[in-house]
């Protein structure tokens, strides 16, 4: 078995999980990953999506030509690989979409977000695939902010105080173009899949302890009518924004967790703040975005003001 920490959970896996942070043999692993068999359908699904089904405590995900994944109780991931798939095809999905679904199953507040550490606080960048989460986290890494998580960020909401972001110290996942534009070739590790020009990238520094959330930014492209900048939506809009930036909003509905996200949004709005970060999708403008963020962190008291 191989042992990892992903989103603060210990994972025992029959197969090597690239991009995940290896850890010592835990007494009891939170999650196990093992090879099949996986049924083609669930016995009593409560909802059937295009390539997935959910039932009480079960999710079945069928990715054609790659694998079927069966998630049980948020504790077990069974996979049955297609004959045409290689191991990297399967593991790319396990450490990505499948683990994100598992976090929903475990009732975490699972956000589609990358996160970095600023003075002991977790700063989250939420957005759909392509919004620039990983690229922004990578650029902040180059400025010395350590990586907390990439693409998926699990939060737990304590009875009082700031929500806690769970680290996974995992590697960033970046497209060849981003690696090139950010001059990160030296940190490039393996390809996610043989057929993709997307790579695991070692962050300069990673945080491995849970951190209270300092701010949540929802990324938005600078297109009319939105100009680059940071603004704070009202609390009602912020609540909707958080739900929409769940890792998979559809699961929040199907798993009847809307109230949990409502409470999480209230807790975040009260302790950290949920903001819109509107930025240009343009590498040449990245320094502007980083400068805007650092000024905002000074205003929020997360960073000391420049002399």
């Amino acid at each position: 078995m191989h042992f990892y920490t992903l989103s603060g959970l210990t994972v025992a896996s029959e197969i090597v999980l690239p991009g995940a942070l290896a850890c010592a043999h835990p007494a009891v692993a939170d999650v196990t990953v093992r090879a099949g068999p996986v049924p083609a359908t669930l016995a009593e699904p409560t909802y059937t999506g295009p390539i997935w089904q959910i039932a009480v405590n079960e999710v079945l995900l069928s990715v054609p030509d790659i694998a079927r994944f069966w998630l049980k109780d948020g504790r077990e991931i069974a996979f049955q690989a297609d004959t045409a798939a290689d191991e990297a095809d399967v593991t790319a999905f396990i450490v990505g979409s499948v683990f994100g679904i598992l976090l929903h199953q475990r009732k975490y507040i699972a956000l589609h977000a990358s996160a970095v550490c600023v003075n002991g606080k977790a700063i989250l960048f939420c957005g759909a695939s392509g919004a620039g989460k990983s690229t922004l986290a990578a650029a902040l890494g180059q400025r010395g902010y350590s990586l907390l998580s990439d693409d998926i960020c699990a939060l737990s909401i304590p009875a009082n105080g700031a929500p806690i972001a769970h680290p996974d110290g995992r590697q960033l996942k970046l497209w060849a173009n981003s690696i090139d534009r950010l001059s990160l070739a030296e940190r490039r590790a393996g390809r996610l899949r043989r057929t993709l020009e997307k790579f695991y990238v070692e962050p300069p520094e990673a945080t491995s302890t849970p951190l209270p959330v300092g701010a949540v930014y929802v990324l938005r492209e600078a297109r009319p009518p939105h100009a680059p900048g940071i603004e704070r939506p009202n609390v009602v809009d912020a609540t909707v924004l958080l739900r929409r930036n769940a890792y998979r909003p559809l699961l929040v509905i199907r798993m009847e967790q809307r109230a949990d996200y409502f409470r999480a949004a209230a807790a975040l709005a009260g302790t950290a703040g949920i903001f819109h970060l509107t930025h240009a999708f343009n590498f040449a403008r990245m320094p502007d975005t980083l400068g805007m963020l650092e000024r905002h962190w000074q205003e929020l008291g997360l960073l000391e003001k420049a002399a």
Partner: peptide
Amino acid sequence: RAPFDHLTLIDSSLLT
């Protein structure tokens, strides 16, 4: 892209 990811639950950036 977003509706594809939303409805399939998987990350289209993992696919060709």
